[in-house]
Simulated scan of single mutants.
Amino acid sequence: MIRKPIFAANWKMNKGPSETEDFAKSLLSKVQNRTFPCDIVIAPPFVSLTKAAEILGNVSSITLAAQNCSQFDSGAYTGEISAMMLKEFFIHYVIIGHSERRSIFGETDEVINAKIRKAREVNLKPIFCIGETLEEREGGRLEKVLRTQVSEGLKGLSERDLLDTVIAYEPVWAIGTGVTATAEQAQDTHAFVRSLVAEQFGADSAAKIRIQYGGSVKPGNAAELMACPDIDGALIGGASLEPQSFLDIIEKGAP
């Protein structure tokens, strides 16, 4: 099964509108008139989405993502942004369930599932993040943790909704630490995650869904990681904040 790789830049709480303008113009100068054998996604902070869309909205090789969305449609939820609101920014993807949302903001599997389903109601494509802590891995609980996250997070999705979802496996111990899972570790875990999808949705759907790796992906390790048969791209944090670094990862990692 040939799956189109997807490389997504998660800027987290970095780059306001002026910095986003600088980044977008620089990236645009590097990708104009080029085609890529992969999907390229950029997820700026909410306040920078308008500026990113203004500059990159007509670039066919690049799509935009939000870093989060609410599980609610509207109402008295101060500080929240609904999936329908995001549609007005020409957003195609939304990151849901990132480990920072889980650990810092207390998002549960139930909340994450509600957000995924809400995103699909308005035809946004979730980038659904899963991953274990170092304590969980060393305690032999990796498979149990991932099984719960996958089964609860994808609960109630149709096959169509599943195939418009990207799973991002991010070992929490490798996010922003400079430590990266070995290619063997990453491949083994991706294969396990794909087997979980097969249990829930069938082998055909599991063969089609894209599963990214995230966790200190850099130009220096991108090629080895992306060569693994079950890794379909990367969710990139710090290394995506500089246009050339982000592009280097894509060029080294895309087939």
Rank of each mutant, 00 (worst) to 15 (best):
I2F: 14
R3G: 00
K4G: 05
P5R: 04
F7V: 08
N10L: 00
W11H: 03
W11E: 06
K12F: 13
P17N: 05
E21C: 06
K25H: 14
P37K: 02
V41G: 05
I42M: 04
I42A: 02
A43H: 02
P44Y: 04
P44C: 09
L49H: 09
A52T: 05
A53L: 09
I55V: 15
L56T: 12
N58C: 11
N58M: 13
S61M: 12
S61Y: 08
A66L: 10
A66Y: 06
Q71P: 08
F72T: 01
G75K: 10
G75N: 03
G75V: 06
A76I: 07
Y77Q: 05
T78D: 11
E80A: 11
S82F: 02
A83D: 07
M85S: 15
F89S: 14
F90V: 07
I91L: 03
H92M: 10
S99E: 06
S99T: 03
E100C: 11
E100Y: 09
R101I: 06
F105Y: 15
E107I: 02
I112W: 05
R117M: 08
K118R: 15
A119P: 02
R120A: 07
L124Q: 09
L124C: 08
K125T: 04
K125W: 04
C129Y: 04
E132V: 02
G139F: 07
R141Q: 13
R141L: 13
V145T: 14
R147C: 03
R147H: 06
L154I: 06
K155Y: 12
K155T: 07
G156V: 05
L157E: 04
L157G: 06
E159H: 09
I167M: 03
Y169G: 02
W173V: 10
T189L: 11
A191S: 13
S195V: 03
G202H: 00
K208I: 01
G214C: 10
G214L: 10
G215S: 04
S216E: 10
K218M: 14
P219V: 01
E224H: 12
E224K: 15
P229N: 11
I231P: 01
I236S: 01
I236D: 00
G238P: 08
G238H: 12
A239V: 02
L247D: 11
I249Y: 00
E251V: 06
K252G: 15
A254Q: 15
A254P: 12
